[in-house]
Design a protein around this nucleic acid. Structure first.
Lengths: 269, 269
DNA sequence: AAGTGGTCTAGACCACCAT
DNA sequence: TGGTGGTCTAGACCACTTA
């Protein structure tokens, strides 16, 4: 396919390389025929399979180019796409790092409720319930399981400005979160997605949500303090990891009396 | 955008005249210091000021590089960003075209209501009311006007699968849409944003929405056929053109009994 | 066959960060 | 000062569309 003879190039000594990943020369794959896509795939594999852990630096672009046997421009093209997908983060003068799920990222990418006047705030999360259960129809469908397969079921109440605004019911496939306990969940140091990422090597990369307006049921009145039957928003979120594999289903009930669900159509570049 | 946006694009490109824009050599500007940003600004100016009209082809990348006195790689970097912002569309082997607001783009970028089972459909729009009015507080704030400034107020009912699902109330600054008449609005050949673009040279580039759940009022019951007080979604949308200038405010009431408001968090690349 | 965008190379120099 | 990403060049060849 390529005219250039790719002479065997020994991978450079990686004594200074901060990750453990070993990269080999790439050829344009058959699936997505371009070289930069092959490089991207290789980097994704390394991140997905734990050779490059969240927060660690990738090898420098020059090193990657040498290791893969491609030019720097090709490496940059691949990394550009990973940056656009929030998989890695570039820092001028420092390096390129595997993105970490911290509070900022959660607020920016995965949390869309704010006060009517536009005030944004990281929600305070109260754990209400933690249990093992079996997937119902909806949960199973969203998670790609069969009904009855084991899941963790977790209930949270989210507070904004000290007020209960959101009731979340999470469903996690038990097979993906082996060893998860209530204590471990409760004592996580950061966001829930940070817990998934650091303890279970599950990185949430994308999600999709479907929202509708419903009347508040008993549960909503009890947990959010709204009147029975009063209008609240109900959001079904499925969170995905690499390869669009579902790793969390979340049913949220939002009291939109003093808060809005915000949606930006086409972000600026 | 699961279907092919090709056909419409193709027609548009064939009928439109090639661009008349004349480009001069660029220097790295003082605002955003890089050369490719200067190229991007120049292209945006040309599009915004009508030298490159919607549907027409940009000069080829080689020509742009010559005209601007930069290398092709620099031109591509600039165009890459315009593509990411949906300002232009590349077509391999044909050229790069100023994006047209057609039904496909509307569905893909600006319409987020679909049937619970995931069925997407271009809504049928019924005009209910068309009038000149004066901006209220909310409308003025969203549009960057003073309360009382003249606007067009337009009411639509949107049908999906033959059922009334959405009630839209649009507010347009009268100063931006001089000569707009009910007839012109009613007899538009395509989407509303296509009308803005072709007749008033207003291209909607982005929008932001704020959604909440409310009880259906008299108007909602009359127009959507829902029970008084039943939960419906209310969405405030502000549509923006270049430079984030607001050009439309839209208040939507959505009957979410059989339809969902959909939100994709982080699109794939 | 001619023209377009898509990929890729093999460098260069600059801006930024840490030491 | 050395290493990183950010920008830019001046080409080459490939894939695709149209005439």
């Amino acid at each position: 396919m390529t005219t250039k003879p790719r002479a065997s190039m020994r991978t450079a000594a990686r004594t200074a390389t901060p990750t453990e990943a070993r990269f080999e020369r790439v050829q344009p794959g058959t699936v997505a025929g371009s070289l930069y896509r092959a490089v991207k795939r290789a980097l994704l594999q390394a991140i997905e399979h734990g050779s490059c852990t969240p927060g660690s630096a990738l090898p420098s672009e020059a090193d990657l180019a040498r290791a893969f046997g491609v030019s720097i421009g090709t490496v940059r093209h691949a990394v550009d796409e990973l940056v656009a997908e929030h998989i890695v983060v570039r820092q001028h003068g420092r390096g390129t790092f595997v993105a970490v799920h911290n509070a900022d990222r959660f607020l920016f990418q995965f949390f869309h409720v704010e006060r009517c006047d536009g005030l944004q705030e990281v929600p305070k999360v109260e754990l209400l319930h933690f249990d093992r259960a079996r997937a119902g129809e909806t949960q199973a469908a969203a998670l790609g399981l069969k009904a009855g397969e084991p899941i963790f079921e977790i209930e949270n109440r989210l507070l904004l400005q000290g007020q209960a605004v959101i009731h979340d019911r999470l469903a996690l496939p038990a097979s993906l979160y082996k060893g998860l306990t209530e204590r471990r969940f409760r004592e996580r140091p950061s966001t829930i997605y940070h817990l998934y990422q650091t303890v279970f090597a599950i990185t949430v990369t994308r999600a999709h949500e479907r929202a509708r307006a419903v009347g508040a049921d008993r549960t909503a009145t009890r947990i959010l303090g709204v009147q029975a039957g009063s209008p609240v928003m109900e959001v079904h979120r499925t969170a995905l990891t690499f390869g669009d594999k579902p790793v969390e289903f979340r049913l949220s009930t939002i009291n939109t009396a003093r808060h809005d669900y915000v949606h930006l159509l086409s972000r600026p570049v």
